[in-house]
Design a protein around this nucleic acid. Structure first.
Lengths: 338, 338
DNA sequence: TTATATTCTGATAACGTTTTCATAGAGCAT
DNA sequence: ATGCTCTATGAAAACGTTATCAGAATATAA
């Protein structure tokens, strides 16, 4: 069967190409008789509309790009899965923009909106993805875009976020409630707003409890497992070691568990641990990890909802959506022992 | 700045659109003088070629789709990351086809090649992704495509695989070498060829060691954590429990660890565990997990290499690529205790 | 200088849709 | 019948590129 275009189909059933197009994209405006005729011919030819032709005419690609630092991170993966689901439901395809934290790749993927390759952008980065010097009008005529997880320092942009500060505070307060006074922290990448905010939450919680902030108790991590192991090792080496550690990600907690295991320190009897993310495995760690649950599915859905509104030029009542988090208390935290 | 097409650029620097096009896509065939002129105008206009126009003309989208069951699985995520990397290097973009094991979604994404939305397919599924009844010529004129991880039952297709049978055998032999005679297994989805092959490897290893196969020792899993926990619990409840468990994935091993922890059975003193995948966290489990390493990066690279060859109509010397695996021995396996 | 080969460039024709505009026909009231 | 409104259709014009082809300009050889 040779390649069948809309013309072949039209010829086969004796109508114009226009009618075939209408039948497929707007069936209601064509009479039932011709509709059946056309549909039959379409079936017979195995005709699928060519995307290029349609896109060229409509100036819509039907694609969106999700720009995200690392798809291997399970938080990111969970969000992307949710996005893919939501996008598929409304007929969009998702292009994967895994950037490996390379600023150039961020720009590269964002530029796809200029060439028409994608219609909109889901940006999980705090880096502004365009060269303003190249087209300064961009700041005022931004393409359809929503920003999530790592907030951009710009306020006319749709965002879906969690309140990292409040979440961190909640986690630390839990430890305080259990009687802990020396609470360590292992951070994420400190250039990431999320990590800065979590640190702020940690600090505030201590302050409100009247506990003096101690520099030695917060060690730099990067959200990865290994940094958790290193960080915990450092905290353990402290002259006056903490009785609890707030890990800025579940990955960090895994690393911390490993360090504690090797040091033969029991969780939670000798050390309480709190994580962040509630990734799938956190309930299966030994002991199961107390952690802050992030609503990955809702994040993806809200991102898609806001992007879709922009794509369809619908009004958006609220550009900033904040999703609730939840502290999941498992067995990695316990009352301080005396 | 209004939308600038190739015509505006051409007008601005006094050449024809054709010359602008040539300057951008095939600079060598245009004189240095005009090239500079054109490039300057391009810069000035901030011109980016419209993808639709180009694609319509060339019939190439510059996209590939990766059809994969679940991006949330870290093996899959690792492979996709590698694919994205390799694809970006040669100028292709990757469309994410997360199928959630829905056969309809597999077909949906594969059909993108018909509409021209993508130029090629990377298929991580054993399901043939086309309706043959719709176009029977497909079997002989397959679109550019490579199949990986879960083999299709078709042999004129490019494949990049690991030898699951040999890998499983290697894992089980390791346990046999340590003196284990009752070795349990927790499988993946048994409809997946990978799981069938691993089971075959398990069986063969036992057989070659002269150990009788015992049905009660192999329990059905689905590669997920929870199935590992359930599976291990079942094995522990056995009248004559095994001394070692071969888990068909690291996720399963995590679940097994959890069950063992709750049952207060020590790994590896009372129970040896072997995993499969060597995902990032496996080295940080307590104890660190002995597992079979899968070369995720190479898998992605080889997939891209083979697909690219097809996209460029290059000859392919070897349609079947088998990548080596490696047994990583850590601390979850030990000599049987008496 | 002329003839010939070579390098560049421009006009033009696709590529395959969708959408606008106009018109033919159908239905309805007068 | 006549006029009128609707509905359904077709013709034709985009959409923005790139590739072919032919011709102009330039270089090379005689």
């Amino acid at each position: 069967m040779s390649k069948s275009g809309i013309k072949q189909v039209a010829a086969l059933c004796g109508v114009s190409p226009a009618t075939v197009s209408r039948t497929l994209s707007n069936p209601d405006i064509v009479s039932e008789k011709t509709r059946d005729k056309v549909l039959k011919a379409v079936e017979l030819c195995g005709y699928t509309p060519n995307r290029f032709g349609a896109s060229l005419r409509t100036q819509k690609s039907g694609n969106i790009v999700v720009i995200i630092p690392d798809i291997t991170n399970s938080v990111n993966a969970g969000i992307i899965r949710s996005i893919e689901n939501a996008a598929a439901k409304v007929g969009y395809s998702v292009l994967l923009g895994d950037t490996q934290r390379d600023p150039e790749k961020v720009k590269h993927y964002a530029a796809m909106v200029r060439s028409g390759q994608v219609d909109g952008i889901l940006l999980f980065s705090h880096q502004f993805p365009f060269d303003l010097k190249e087209d300064s009008s961009l700041l005022h005529h931004l393409p359809p875009m929503v920003n999530s997880c790592e907030p951009l320092a710009l306020d006319n942009i749709c965002k879906v976020m969690i309140n990292n500060t409040a979440a961190a505070k909640m986690a630390v307060n839990h430890l305080l409630d259990l009687g802990h006074r020396r609470i360590g922290a292992i951070t994420g990448n400190m250039d990431a707003p999320s990590s800065q905010e979590r640190l702020a939450g940690y600090t505030q919680a201590l302050q409100e409890a009247g506990i003096e902030f101690s520099v030695e108790l917060v060690v730099d991590g990067n959200y990865q497992i290994e940094s958790g192991k290193l960080g915990a090792t450092k905290l353990l080496a402290l002259h006056n070691r903490p009785t609890a550690i707030f890990c800025f990600s579940d990955n960090i907690a895994v690393g911390a568990y490993s360090a504690l295991y090797e040091a033969k320190i029991e969780v939670p009897q000798q050390m309480s641990i709190v994580g962040f993310d509630d990734t799938e495995f956190s309930g299966y760690l030994n002991p199961p990890l107390t952690t802050v649950h992030q609503p990955l599915i809702e994040i993806g859905q809200q991102c898609m909802r806001l992007l879709l509104a922009q794509l369809n030029a619908k009004p958006i009542s609220n550009k900033y959506v904040e999703l609730p988090v939840q502290l999941i208390i498992r067995n990695s935290t316990a009352k301080i022992s005396h």
